[in-house]
C-alpha cells in the first residue's frame, strides 16, 4: 500500500477510460457484454458467479469511490480481480513469469448513455506466448470461466 496514491492515479486513468463509455476498438481480445441488470445488481452477480464457479474474488477496485476523493464524478466502474488458488499453485512454480497475467480481471461499468457493460480481455493468447501447452490450456480455461461468469452476470 506504499503506492496507494499510485493506485489512485492508475484507477483514475481507468476511470477516465470508463468515462468515455467506449471500448478500445481494434482490440480483438476484448469482450464487452451489455447487462440486463442495473450496475449494482450486475456487480453482485459477477461476484456471486465467481464464487459459485469455485473461484475467489481476490480484489475489488471501486474506481467511482476512489475518484470521488480527488473530486471526479463518474458513473459506476468497478474492477473485480478473480482467480483459482489451485491454478496459481500449478502455474507459478512452473513459470513464475506468468504471475504478470494473474489474476483474471472483469470490469463492470456504466457507459455514458447509462448502459451497464461487463468487460474482460481474453488471456489465452498471452498465456500461449509462454510456449507451454499446460499454460496455454490454463489460459483457455480462464477465458472460458470469464465468459461463463460474465454471461451469467449479464443475463
Amino acid at each position: 500500500m506504499k503506492t496507494t496514491m499510485m493506485v489512485l492515479a492508475v484507477a483514475s486513468l481507468l476511470g477516465v477510460s470508463a468515462l468515455t463509455g467506449t471500448a478500445q476498438s481494434g482490440d480483438a481480445n476484448r469482450v464487452d457484454k451489455l447487462s440486463n441488470k442495473p450496475f449494482s445488481d450486475t456487480l453482485k452477480a459477477v461476484e456471486k458467479t465467481v464464487k459459485s464457479e469455485g473461484m475467489m474474488v481476490v480484489a475489488k477496485i471501486d474506481h467511482k469511490k476512489m475518484l470521488s476523493m480527488v473530486g471526479a464524478t463518474i458513473k459506476g466502474a468497478t474492477t473485480i480481480e478473480f482467480g483459482k488458488p489451485e491454478m496459481g499453485k500449478m502455474l507459478l512454480p512452473m513459470n513464475p513469469a506468468i504471475g504478470l497475467e494473474m489474476p483474471g480481471k472483469i470490469f463492470v461499468y456504466e457507459s455514458a448513455d447509462g448502459r451497464v457493460v461487463v468487460s474482460f480481455r481474453k488471456v489465452a493468447p498471452q498465456y500461449a506466448s509462454y510456449g507451454d501447452p499446460e499454460v496455454k490450456k490454463a489460459g483457455e480455461m480462464m477465458d472460458m470461466m470469464a465468459d461463463k461468469i460474465t454471461s451469467a452476470a449479464t443475463r
Partner: peptide
Amino acid sequence: MANLRPASKTSQTIPRMSDESLSL
C-alpha cells in the same frame, strides 16, 4: 464495442442517499 449484446432492460437508480451526499 465488440461482442455487445442488446440490452433488454435499462439500469435503474434506487432512490436513497448516495455515498457522496453522506460524505458531504
